[in-house]
Design a protein around this nucleic acid. Structure first.
Length: 219
DNA sequence: ATCCCGAGGG
DNA sequence: CCCTCTGGAT
């Protein structure tokens, strides 16, 4: 099957089944989403939501977080992965937010990446979710699922290359929701270790499944 | 033992 | 390119 065809089928299927997929992170403003996404690295959304439930009331604004210390923040986030790094990142991020951006979350990838703890993936989530830009954040799920389905060439070995491929082929108005489609599919069906192909409706369009079928015909 | 909506540093 | 950070769930 041609790549163009895969994209068409993918968009069609997910548009029907998950028309309004969105993040599971709990937040009420751009600042809170930024904090939550920084915390979400190599950590489940559920765990992040548990932590932010107490973190946000203690640090409701960039100013309050900027005025604190990494040591105090650490106590609130110690149950997420890499709590030491993230505590430093959060305080550093808040201070730059206050000092350089008038306490407003900036709306460009470049400005967002000036803050500690904010890499390309996090920046893409913010401009997509908060500022409605056609940006594709490529995390571990998006990367894995894109390769398995055959949406990107094997030569796309970095998240940035995968991002550019997906942006090129997905209709502009579907990019934001497509990000969440790939996340959901990766989280619940096309999981990393043993993908649940028996439950997957994308089999007819999946390159990895096709190849597996060819290698082991009894399946 | 392996993975979870990565980022920073060498 | 590699390595480190390093808690919790399965």
């Amino acid at each position: 099957m041609q790549k163009k065809e895969r994209y068409k089928e993918l968009v069609e299927y997910f548009s029907m089944n998950y028309p309004e997929a969105e993040t599971e992170l709990v937040y009420t403003n751009p600042y809170e989403l930024l904090v939550a996404v920084i915390l979400s690295a190599q950590c489940t959304d559920k765990r992040v939501n548990i932590v932010t439930q107490k973190l946000f009331p203690r640090f409701p604004t960039p100013e309050s977080l900027a005025a604190s210390t990494a040591e105090e923040v650490f106590e609130y986030i110690r149950s997420v992965s890499y709590p030491n790094n993230k505590a430093k990142h959060l305080v550093g991020m808040a201070r730059i937010l206050v000092n350089d951006f008038n306490s407003e979350v900036p709306n460009t990838i470049e400005d967002l990446q000036k803050m500690p703890g904010v890499g390309r993936k996090t920046a893409n989530v913010i401009v997509s979710v908060i500022f409605n830009q056609p940006a594709m954040a490529v995390d571990t799920h998006v990367f894995r699922v894109s390769h398995r389905l055959g949406l990107v060439p094997k030569t796309a070995k970095t998240p940035l290359l995968v991002e550019k491929q997906l942006i090129k082929h997905i209709p502009k108005d579907k990019i934001a929701v497509a990000h969440h489609w790939l996340i959901l599919h990766g989280r619940y069906i096309c999981v990393a270790r043993t993908p649940k192909c028996s439950e997957c409706n994308l089999k007819p369009f999946c390159q990895a499944f096709e190849k597996q079928k060819f290698d082991t015909p009894h399946l």
